[in-house]
Design a protein around this nucleic acid. Sequence first.
DNA 1: AAACCTGCCAACCGCTGCTAC
DNA 2: CGTAGCAGCGGTTGGCAGGTT
Length: 273
Amino acid sequence: MRASKKIISSCNEQLDELRRGPWTLDEDNLLIHYITCHGEGRWNSLAKASGLKRTGKSCRLRWLNYLKPDVKHGNLTPQEQILILELHSKWGNRWSKIAQNLPGRTDNEIKNYWRTKVQKQARHLKIDSNSKIFVEALRQYLVPRLIEKLELSSPSSSSTSTSTMEINHKNFNSQPQSKETLMENTSSNSNIYSSNSKRIMLPYLPENSVQSNGYIVDNNNFDVMSFNQSNTQEFMSSDMPAFEFQMAGIDWTSNEFADDTFWNMDELWQFKK
DNA sequence: AAACCTGCCAACCGCTGCTAC
DNA sequence: CGTAGCAGCGGTTGGCAGGTT
């Protein structure tokens, strides 16, 4: 009895010693220095050996989400936003899996983006962000906006990057294609990118090819091929709530959208009750 | 100027799956 | 086979900053 009390007391003392909350600069430096010398992994022993009064979990999270050299900070690019929307429509809340296709972005960041930006729009619409209706709304309204912005902000961006994905804009609103056709069209020898085909270069290469009902993400080509505009009328009349979407009253050709704030989703959507 | 509200994001929590013993 | 320890994942929380009343 007395012994067990002693153990509990010891555990409590250890818990009391553990630091929580925001990391200090000194802690960051200590963690960076330790990982530089000894490498990452084995987080619990790392936490103890480094002298940090943090849990292994906390160290791992801090390193992966913030301190790791290849972690990118700052606003998500429109390319990244499009990719997130598509991958989420395919995989749902598999944040880490989605993050694997956005180099330098963490699952936490993508999760936060989804919750604060995308779900906010769903709340405005009073529909579930995981519902088919909302996914379709994204396809019909938001993604085209993002792609247009992408074009306008980088009209001559093609071939400027050595590591790129491409959006085949020509086919963006085309009729849906069969899976076989889609796969064929995005093969390495595809001739889908004919000379008059509009291309937008995306800066990242997903690690793995992805094919979904919206468009294809491929190591060599990023196609937006089959968002089905023709279904819009039927879809809107049958399933949409009793409000209407309204395209944002935006001058798409204006230079004001060169600014980062342009990519704020609030500016891309307007809702009218 | 102060109180209140809202959005953002870093960090924590609980759970699951894997692995070694 | 059962169990402990660990890493990783997704959901949630809390604090801060900026905006609004």
